[in-house]
Design a protein around this nucleic acid. Sequence first.
DNA 1: CTCGTTCTGGAACGTTCGGTCCGAATGGTA
DNA 2: TACCATTCGGACCGAACGTTCCAGAACGAG
Lengths: 215, 215
Amino acid sequence: MLEPVSTTDTAPAEGPTATRPIGRPRQFDGDDVLATVVELFWEQGYAATSIGDVVARTGLSKSSLYGAFGSKEELFRRALESYLGDHRTMIEAMVADGPKGLAAIDAFFDRVGAQAGGPEAANGCFIVNTSAELGTMEPSVVECGAEHRAILRAGFTTALEGAVDVGEFPADRVAPTANVLVTLALGLAVMIRGGATAEEALLHVEAAKATLRIG
Amino acid sequence: MLEPVSTTDTAPAEGPTATRPIGRPRQFDGDDVLATVVELFWEQGYAATSIGDVVARTGLSKSSLYGAFGSKEELFRRALESYLGDHRTMIEAMVADGPKGLAAIDAFFDRVGAQAGGPEAANGCFIVNTSAELGTMEPSVVECGAEHRAILRAGFTTALEGAVDVGEFPADRVAPTANVLVTLALGLAVMIRGGATAEEALLHVEAAKATLRIG
DNA sequence: CTCGTTCTGGAACGTTCGGTCCGAATGGTA
DNA sequence: TACCATTCGGACCGAACGTTCCAGAACGAG
């Protein structure tokens, strides 16, 4: 993951001078396909999603899929990385562009809570679902989960430090509170994925937000 | 689930006077088998566990399994219910017999945290894993998850009320804090299942416990 | 002991799985 | 235009899946 550039794995080691690939060009965009595949695995999980499902959803043929991604396992890994990248970008954007201090954290949890009980089933967080499904079977998934938590922790820490700056929050409680917020985010994700009603989810979201303000 | 009595589903409607079953008796105990099956599904998840795995682990033959439980789906449902029952019993026992007040909550989270990074992989919570894997696909799983949260909420509420009685905790914060603790419990479970190191898990456990004492 | 009923082991069923293969199609290059 | 590396669609593969079936074993009742 050196460059976030669109690549499908058969990209023939593009040198500094972008060499035009020879032979018949791909008829699909690898990143578009990956986005569709993320949706699918996110909804159904790894084991319950067959290559046939992927073929049906993407419209590609099996050989195109295997030519571009190698195997179901690799395809899944790529999907997970893609999701993680998007997630990181989103968190960083919220911290940088959104409200500051405790309001930033409110905004995050409101957004999480807004998923619950939607018309189409709410799927929680792809990484959380995958961690729960596969556990420690796949080292890359373990690493992905750890990085996911690190991203959340960093975002919460930055927001809490902003809150400290404006006197909203005691400085000595930043680190433990960031950890609590990470755990709460994971818990809410699994709760929403599990079909909690919007009311129940909202209750937990409000309780999480209230936690920040009793110092 | 009227009686927690050992039944496998082909029990011929045992009347008030226990009628002796006719024909060849079972050569296994349904509850023992179910306990083994819980382990297996807990470790591997629903979709990744085959009937062949169950046969290998239990030592039963396929026909015995199908005769007693009907299908993979029913077997899984029974396993989940069995786990939920054990979980309820354990929580109620902790509340009734263990330390009181905030110390009861400490004990719970210490116990959760102690799982992390063990020699054999820590599998988190079977119900949490299942909720994350299956989402809302199966209504009985949704219901099971909701009841799991209700059990936790009730236990935490009782413990917090005990803390209020001895002046450890403000009465007006019992309900929201119980909800926060439920969310934290789910979050920790998925984190541990995902292979978090013992250090990271302990950090989050301590942060969770600290949350209770800043009022 | 014999009968009736149930359980057991293992073979067998049709389906679906992840993955491979190959001939036809494609489009850039010369 | 002819060439050629590559991709595409779809048939195909062996293995594994969940489930069913059946002949024989096991036991209680008569």
